[in-house]
Design a protein around this nucleic acid. Structure first.
Lengths: 340, 340
DNA sequence: ATGAAAGCGCTAACAT
DNA sequence: ATGTTAGCGCTTTCAT
């Protein structure tokens, strides 16, 4: 049993053991090519044997690159979005894993972080999930010229370096068709604040869809502060109209649940009197009674793509401005299973 | 409008501007006390004016301390726990914020990370949420002597530096009393794998409680892989017994929901025929029909306490081994509102 | 193909 | 109270 070295083994130790210089070890380890194959092999063997691993801070200091990126789940009013957030945990974990794969470390940024703390993070760029565009992390980094990739787009003037998103327009069309196939004739939509691109995309698509059919669009948006009470009020407003919709596409799981709740209270059967679908799937919806139709947005894939995009821009700034679309898969459940 | 400096302003710039040495600036900024008040004031003013902020990597390299900590949400089988995870997002965000307050940066570790990636993280310690004790992050760091604080305890031989937890034993007693007050006479418990301390604590408390009353304990545990199907099977098993319980305390929200689901299918009314309570609250439970009684575990507080504990141990290793208990508050809802 | 040496920005003995 | 100086562990130009 070998003694545990008190000091971490450094590049110096390997150089000594191999009888070469620091430069050679560094080159060999970083694949700079300027090293003879056998020397390189010897160095790698030694590194493995001695249990070497580079001191990231020394590398970062020498190269001037942080090799770290921040991830932030945007919130409603500084608080984390109050809903089923398995989606967010999946995104976060996949970002962490993907970051490692690219040689980066993912640091977590709380939604209410202050701009002055950004320097302490020492990140090269950031990923912001479901941004409004107002997040201090996003604006501060953007203004410094550091790349920010978002999951969901920032509406309006784009100051980000790219985005990855599901095609929410296609999803809206898909769900409206799905409603139509099941015989629903007056679908409505229920959204959160329109500051999020998923809501804006859906509203736009829905309104065009309605216009094309000469149907009066019915939509309610919870303008700010997504709470259970606000969700209930919105659902109530929707279902108490004289031209009550016979189907509702809700942007958030809480909105879908609120709709189901209000429907039940009003004696409307789901899916008989009212069809309900949600824009993203969650455990809550699977467990509702009846289970609610929703889209699988593939959160892990979204996280991975966001990291790929960000690291690509970091490696080559000319690649900024790209986007990636991840498919959304409709999971049809009982809440829309009315025979057409 | 001043020109944006191409290079970040360093301690050197401040020293030059103030006409003092690097040491003095460093001392002043770090509050080493060895500086005249007026000099210090001048240095701070200059630092603010020039927009100085320390290069964390240089500090870390010089001090040998990473000033970073890892956070990990333990999973079931390498995947994130499939349930309402607003709880986890709250813990994560509070850990991030608290870490900053203590001068640390929180880096995110995916539950399926490989041990070899731990060096790349370069953290001084870690916080693991709901550990089994088998997490590579935990075992690897512990074996290196790096402190690990857990949220929920590791069962068995403790190799961690402290833990913060809700008092799940007290909570179990509380909910059993609550059931009793409402007139329920044969409460049962439904748990996930007993590798988590919250489950073990609850089982132990419940069994003692039953023993003391000469009641035959009724409990079902989902041994591994928490899925919707597994939860349903467990609930089914519980409610199909000839000595069917009249109340169920479920450790996870999915288990509570599954119980409500099965009850409904079997024509059992909640809370009339069956009382249901869950160990931790979530949006899902608020929206269930009827809404389910549960405990508020104060996730943000748990995250903050975990960081406080970890940084305390980091600052002074003799403080290892402490623990903090965060209260759990019973939120009584319709699912247990049977008149006793 | 390999080595010497400077430097990344900061801290911390050790002077003075 | 303030300054000098030697690192921290690595990368990288420039020699050889």
């Amino acid at each position: 049993m070998r003694m545990q070295p008190r000091r971490r083994v450094s590049i110096r130790d390997i150089a000594d053991a191999a009888g070469v210089s620091l430069t050679t070890v560094s080159h060999a380890l970083n694949g700079k090519g300027r090293v003879q194959p056998e020397t390189r092999a010897r160095i790698f063997a030694l590194a493995a044997e001695l249990g070497y691993s580079a001191n990231p801070h020394a590398q970062r200091l020498a190269t001037g690159r942080h090799m770290m990126l921040a991830v932030q789940i945007s919130g409603f009013g500084g608080k984390a979005l109050a809903t089923d957030s398995a989606y967010f945990v999946d995104v976060l974990n996949s970002v962490s894993a993907a970051a490692l794969d690219h040689g980066y470390t993912a640091v977590l940024a709380a939604p209410d972080m202050r701009p002055r703390d950004i320097d302490a993070f020492a990140v090269d760029g950031a990923i912001v999930v479901d941004p409004t565009g107002e997040e201090p992390l996003l604006t501060t980094l953007a203004q410094r010229g550091a790349p920010v990739v978002t999951t969901g787009r920032v509406l309006g003037a784009g100051q980000t370096s790219g985005w990855v998103d599901n095609d929410l327009r296609k999803a809206a069309t898909r769900v409206l068709d799905h409603f139509g196939d099941a015989g629903y004739e007056r679908p409505a939509i229920l959204t959160g604040p329109l500051t999020r691109s998923y809501a804006a995309d859906t509203v736009e698509t829905y309104e065009r869809w309605a216009r094309e059919r000469g149907i009066e669009p019915i939509s309610v948006a919870v303008r700010s502060g997504m709470s259970a009470a606000a969700a209930m009020r919105a659902a109530e407003a929707l279902l108490s109209r004289r031209d009550r919709p016979d189907a509702v596409y809700a942007m958030l799981d809480v909105l879908a649940l609120a709709t189901a709740h209000v429907a039940r209270r009003r004696g409307l059967s789901v899916p008989g009197d009212l069809g309900i679908a949600a824009a993203f799937d969650s455990e809550v919806l699977r467990w509702a009674d009846p289970p609610l139709t929703a889209f699988d947005l593939h959160p892990a894939r979204i996280g991975r793509e966001a990291v790929a995009l960000l690291t690509a821009v970091l490696a080559d700034p000319t690649r900024a401005g790209r986007s990636v679309t991840v498919p959304a898969k409709l999971i049809s459940r009982a809440s829309t299973a009315r025979s057409g």
